[in-house]
Design a protein around this nucleic acid. Structure first.
Lengths: 152, 152
DNA sequence: GTATTTGCAAATACTTTGCAAAACC
DNA sequence: GGTTTTGCAAAGTATTTGCAAATAC
């Protein structure tokens, strides 16, 4: 895999934010640094990076796929009002894979959890806002950004 | 809401199967009984029935939405090999909503769980089959079809 | 009789792909 | 220099919508 500027910038921008942007949102972010980048390149590279395990492609509710610069598996929560998607810093419950396997005879490998609710902003009256309020910078500050524990 | 034949047949066909068909699969099922039905009508009615709470629109991984004639909330498992989606007869863990709420400051209302693994058929060698093996009739037989307990 | 719903077709939304030129190693 | 990747544009897939005719109540 070649180290192209486009690929590098896409990854840098995605890792920089805690939001879970769509391909088009990433396109807008990258375009500020590489104005001639194309949307096709964004999609191609996000796919490659996801295959790689460098990032995660999220299959959350809604029409667009979202991408997560944190490749460690973790749960997500989606705001029913504004659509934003946040991480849920709670240890994944690996044990339920076995229970599901017994109940279905599937060989269960993993699971995804998507909580739904109302985010703190929307609780404070900013209701029915369609657009998530732009990309937020990833930080280690303690603004609810509890560290994810390792998978159980 | 009017009781049209199309709407009635769509619901009947959906409730009849344990698979979680896509709109196009439902279209094919309904078309056998109402050959002149249109795909637009299928989409419009599935949307109405889901709003209603009569059925569920599932946001599972993949490009197409799937529909579930069982409106009670329950978990699902998806086969990584053939793509089929089955119910997981395990009681939902309502308690984790609170944990997620505390961890994120969201007002968490509910959650969805999607297990992923390999279904019994694919374990037996039928690998890499793209098409789920057709609609299966819903039954109360004990072929793994454990009754779902009520939401906790 | 009137409002809802249908079938049809066109439009929309998101993502993928073909191809020649450019970039990487 | 040969292969991978890019930008661009066109195509593909899933879903939604406008509208006149048909249907339910």
């Amino acid at each position: 895999m070649r180290n192209t500027e486009q690929r590098r910038v896409i990854l840098e921008e995605l890792v920089k934010v805690v939001s879970h942007p769509t391909a088009v949102e990433i396109y807008e972010m990258v375009r500020k640094r590489l104005p001639r980048v194309s949307l096709g390149t964004i999609y191609r590279n996000l796919e490659i990076l996801a295959q790689n395990g460098t990032i995660q492609k999220l299959e959350v509710a809604g029409t667009q796929k979202r991408f997560d610069g944190n490749a460690t598996r973790h749960y997500h929560v989606r705001c029913l009002s504004c659509g934003r998607v946040d991480d849920v810093p709670v240890p994944p419950i690996a044990a339920i894979n076995d229970a599901a396997g017994e109940a279905t005879n599937y060989d269960v490998l993993w699971h995804h959890v998507e909580f739904e609710g109302i985010c703190p902003r929307c609780q404070k009256g900013r209701e029915k806002v369609a657009q998530p309020g732009g990309a937020e910078v990833r930080s280690n500050a303690n603004e609810g950004a509890v560290r994810l524990s390792t998978e159980v």
